[in-house]
Structure formats: structure tokens, C-alpha cells
């Protein structure tokens, strides 16, 4: 329905010259953008409260057994495991569901839902867990004391504690033993007008199950998807207003 409408339209926007100079428009299909580059920012610029980054997950396009998004995340952030699945960090995981009554199955990625009212931020004693102005939930690795209260509080089991020394870290994604971490929507990429690694990988694989963009921009593809397709928030009973919305489950 709306896909067809989208395809039928050639829609390009004018970008702020100073912000997006040199950035290439990620046109994945005619009229189909996964990110709205106009709201990217320079390193010395604060995040804009006018923006709220979010993600649309189309579970009908998410292939069972495919872990491209997970692999891309692991590569992007240097999350190589130690063959200790109980303590190895996972920022995004594939969740396979089966309806207890009907036997219907789903496969979908689960990660930090970047809530508007995140329980992890509420409980963090030092304020290390915080919501950036553009809605991305982050952990300040310098003030995290490793109490793990946020892990107790997160309804999505989205957080990992670093249980050992790390090597081969990515400069853009610093991590530290004894602190907690989770999906950060690839904030370094988003600030550089690029898509989160998982979204890019899903698109490269041809599934296009993940759409990323500005929820506050009515013209963004993600907003259009959310306004035209039925979606749910996981644990919507908690009233957290998640920035990740799922279609088809």
C-alpha cells in the first residue's frame, strides 16, 4: 500500500548546506530513504531536541535465521565474544517467537528500544545512563560505576555488562570492563549522516526490514511508515514510548 505510493514518488529534499555538505543521499529505492540526512550534525554541535531518532521494524520482512544485523553490529562496535555466552555482550539479538496457541512464528531483532522514559535512566544512581536530546539512550562510560541497576530495570534485556578486559576496540565505540553498555543507534554514524550498521546491513541483504529516521519529521520515511502501517511497542503496557516500533507481530 504505502510502499507502492512511495515507489511512485520521486521525492528529494533540500539539505542544510552546512550540515550535509558532501553527504550522499542514501537513496535505496525511488523515493525511499532510510535516514533523513538533513538532521545530521557536526561533532561540536549538540544534539537537537527537535529530532527524535527512531526505527521501524517490519517483522514480515525479517528472515528467520538471518543475523546480518547482529553481525554488522558486532563488527561495527567490536563486540567479539569470549565463547562465554552467559557473559558475552550482545547489543542486538535475533528473537524467535512462537505463538503458544496458534504456533505462528516470527523472527525479529531486539535491542535497546530508546524509550522516551527509559527505566534504565530513571534508576541509574550517577546519571551515567541518559537520553540525548535527540532521543538516543546512551551510557556515559566515564560515570558508569558498574552497579548494573539499569540491567535490572530494562524490560528488554537490552543491556550487557562488560565482564572482562577488552582488546581491539573500535575508536568510535569505546567500551570498558566493569561498565554497562547497549545499542546506541550507532550514534557515531548517525551524527555523521550515516545509517546504523544494522539498518545498512539489513538493507544490503535485500530484506529492508529496518527503517531508521527522525520520528519528529512527518516527511521522514520512518514517520510515514509508522503513520500508515500498524505497529506495536514491545511492553507497551509500561508506557515508555519506545522509539523502536514493530510491524507484523
Amino acid at each position: 500500500m504505502s510502499d507502492n505510493q512511495d515507489k511512485g514518488r520521486e521525492d528529494r529534499r533540500t539539505f542544510f548546506a552546512q550540515v550535509s555538505a558532501g553527504a550522499a543521499l542514501l537513496a535505496l529505492a525511488p523515493g525511499f530513504r532510510l535516514i533523513d540526512l538533513a538532521v545530521g550534525k557536526n561533532d561540536d554541535e549538540p544534539a537537537s531536541p527537535d529530532v527524535r531518532w527512531g526505527m521501524f521494524v517490519d517483522t514480515t520482512r525479517c528472515a528467520e535465521g538471518c543475523t546480518d544485523c547482529v553481525d554488522a553490529c558486532n563488527t561495527e562496535h567490536g563486540l567479539h565474544g569470549f565463547d562465554r555466552p552467559q557473559t558475552d555482550a550482545q547489543w542486538i539479538r535475533k528473537l524467535d517467537l512462537e505463538d503458544d496457541q496458534t504456533g505462528q512464528t516470527w523472527s525479529l531483532p531486539m535491542m535497546c528500544q530508546h524509550c522516551e522514559s527509559p527505566p534504565c535512566v530513571d534508576v541509574c544512581p550517577t546519571g551515567a545512563s541518559f537520553v540525548r536530546d535527540d532521543g538516543i539512550v546512551l551510557v556515559d562510560k566515564h560515570t558508569c560505576i558498574g552497579c548494573r541497576y539499569c540491567m535490572m530495570a530494562c524490560p528488554y534485556k537490552a543491556r550487557s555488562f562488560i565482564h572482562e578486559d577488552l582488546t581491539d576496540q573500535r575508536p568510535h565505540s569505546p567500551r570498558g570492563k566493569g561498565t554497562v553498555e547497549s545499542c546506541n543507534f550507532c550514534v557515531h554514524r548517525v551524527d555523521g549522516n550515516r545509517l546504523p550498521a544494522c539498518v545498512e546491513a539489513c538493507s544490503d541483504a535485500g530484506h529492508k526490514a529496518l527503517v531508521f529516521g527522525d520520528l519528529n519529521d512527518a516527511e521522514s520515511t520512518v514517520s510515514k511508515r509508522l503513520s500508515t502501517m500498524q505497529t506495536t511497542q514491545v511492553r507497551d503496557d509500561l508506557g515508555l514510548n519506545t522509539a523502536v516500533r514493530y510491524h507484523g507481530v
Binding site: V123, T143, I145
Partner: peptide, 22 residues
């Protein structure tokens, strides 16, 4: 038992007053 017990001073000086821990 903290992951970073060396940061006790952070816990004693940086507060999030919404946190019951704080």
C-alpha cells in the same frame, strides 16, 4: 562488587535524584 569500585567518588558526587539507588 561494583564494576568500577574505583569510581566510588563518582557515586558520591554525581547524583541522579530520580534513582532510588541515589
Amino acid at each position: 562488587d561494583l564494576g568500577r569500585p574505583d569510581r566510588l567518588i563518582v557515586a558520591m558526587t554525581t547524583y541522579n535524584f530520580k534513582s532510588i539507588f541515589a
